[in-house]
Deep mutational scan, measured.
Amino acid sequence: TGEEYIAVGDSTAQQVGDLTFKKGEILLVIEKKPDGWWIAKDAKGNEGLVPRTYLEPYS
């Protein structure tokens, strides 16, 4: 379980453990880390770190 967020920009994984996503994708945020990198899952079930500045709450 988690909260749904929509990507407001494209982000390409810079290192192992990062999640690549495109603008408009809905991501499920699993954990919000205080350093600004959140753990999220995409629609295909891929999981990784995403920069919170690229996400907005999805409603």
Score class of each variant (00 low, 15 high):
residue 6 I to T: 04
residue 45 G to R: 02
residue 26 I to T: 04
residue 30 I to Q: 04
residue 3 E to D: 09
residue 27 L to D: 01
residue 54 Y to C: 14
residue 18 D to L: 15
residue 2 G to A: 11
residue 22 K to W: 06
residue 45 G to L: 03
residue 31 E to I: 10
residue 44 K to L: 12
residue 45 G to S: 03
residue 16 V to A: 12
residue 57 P to V: 08
residue 30 I to A: 02
residue 26 I to G: 01
residue 39 I to P: 01
residue 56 E to V: 13
residue 28 L to I: 13
residue 13 A to D: 10
residue 40 A to G: 03
residue 57 P to Y: 07
residue 17 G to M: 05
residue 58 Y to C: 06
residue 31 E to N: 10
residue 3 E to A: 08
residue 12 T to F: 12
residue 5 Y to G: 00
residue 30 I to H: 03
residue 11 S to I: 14
residue 17 G to C: 06
residue 31 E to R: 08
residue 39 I to S: 04
residue 4 E to T: 14
residue 39 I to D: 02
residue 32 K to I: 05
residue 29 V to Y: 00
residue 9 G to E: 15
residue 57 P to M: 06
residue 57 P to A: 08
residue 13 A to N: 11
residue 26 I to D: 00
residue 20 T to K: 10
residue 19 L to H: 02
residue 40 A to P: 00
residue 59 S to T: 12
residue 6 I to Q: 06
residue 5 Y to W: 13
residue 46 N to S: 06
residue 53 T to H: 14
residue 40 A to E: 00
residue 4 E to Q: 14
residue 23 K to Q: 07
residue 1 T to L: 13
residue 52 R to D: 14
residue 53 T to R: 12
residue 39 I to Y: 12
residue 53 T to F: 11
residue 6 I to L: 07
residue 9 G to T: 15
residue 31 E to Q: 11
residue 19 L to T: 01
residue 36 G to Y: 03
residue 8 V to G: 04
residue 58 Y to V: 11
residue 43 A to F: 09
residue 14 Q to S: 12
residue 11 S to G: 07
residue 45 G to C: 05
residue 28 L to M: 10
residue 45 G to T: 02
residue 51 P to G: 08
residue 30 I to G: 02
residue 11 S to R: 15
residue 31 E to M: 12
residue 20 T to Y: 08
residue 43 A to I: 09
residue 53 T to A: 14
residue 49 L to R: 15
residue 35 D to M: 03
residue 25 E to K: 00
residue 39 I to M: 09
residue 32 K to Q: 06
residue 53 T to L: 10
residue 24 G to E: 02
residue 54 Y to D: 08
residue 11 S to A: 10
residue 50 V to I: 07
residue 19 L to G: 01
residue 57 P to L: 10
residue 50 V to F: 01
residue 4 E to Y: 15
residue 1 T to P: 12
residue 10 D to W: 05
residue 49 L to A: 08
residue 38 W to N: 00
residue 24 G to F: 04
residue 35 D to R: 01
residue 31 E to A: 11
residue 30 I to C: 05
residue 19 L to E: 00
residue 14 Q to C: 13
residue 38 W to S: 00
residue 44 K to V: 09
residue 28 L to E: 05
residue 41 K to N: 04
residue 13 A to W: 13
residue 27 L to Y: 03
residue 3 E to C: 11
residue 56 E to C: 13
residue 2 G to K: 07
residue 38 W to M: 04
residue 18 D to C: 15
residue 4 E to P: 14
residue 42 D to Q: 01
residue 17 G to E: 05
residue 3 E to K: 07
residue 41 K to W: 06
residue 46 N to F: 07
residue 34 P to D: 13
residue 34 P to M: 09
residue 30 I to E: 02
residue 27 L to S: 00
residue 29 V to R: 00
residue 51 P to I: 09
residue 15 Q to S: 13
residue 4 E to L: 15
residue 19 L to V: 03
residue 31 E to D: 10
residue 17 G to P: 05
residue 5 Y to Q: 01
residue 4 E to I: 14
residue 10 D to F: 05
residue 40 A to I: 06
residue 51 P to A: 11
residue 48 G to T: 02
residue 46 N to D: 07
residue 37 W to C: 12
residue 57 P to C: 07
residue 8 V to W: 05
residue 29 V to P: 00
residue 27 L to R: 00
residue 13 A to K: 07
residue 27 L to V: 06
residue 26 I to L: 08
residue 52 R to W: 14
residue 39 I to Q: 05
residue 44 K to C: 14
residue 22 K to A: 07
residue 15 Q to F: 11
residue 38 W to R: 00
residue 25 E to M: 08
residue 33 K to Y: 09
residue 47 E to R: 09
residue 56 E to Q: 11
residue 17 G to Q: 06
residue 8 V to M: 10
residue 8 V to P: 03
residue 45 G to K: 02
residue 41 K to I: 14
residue 33 K to T: 09
residue 47 E to C: 14
residue 48 G to L: 04
residue 14 Q to K: 11
residue 31 E to S: 11
residue 37 W to A: 07
residue 20 T to Q: 11
residue 14 Q to L: 14
residue 40 A to M: 14
residue 14 Q to I: 13
residue 5 Y to H: 05
residue 52 R to H: 15
residue 6 I to G: 02
residue 58 Y to A: 09
residue 43 A to N: 10
residue 45 G to F: 03
residue 20 T to L: 08
residue 18 D to H: 15
residue 10 D to T: 07
residue 49 L to P: 05
residue 17 G to T: 07
residue 10 D to N: 09
residue 28 L to Q: 07
residue 36 G to T: 03
residue 22 K to Y: 09
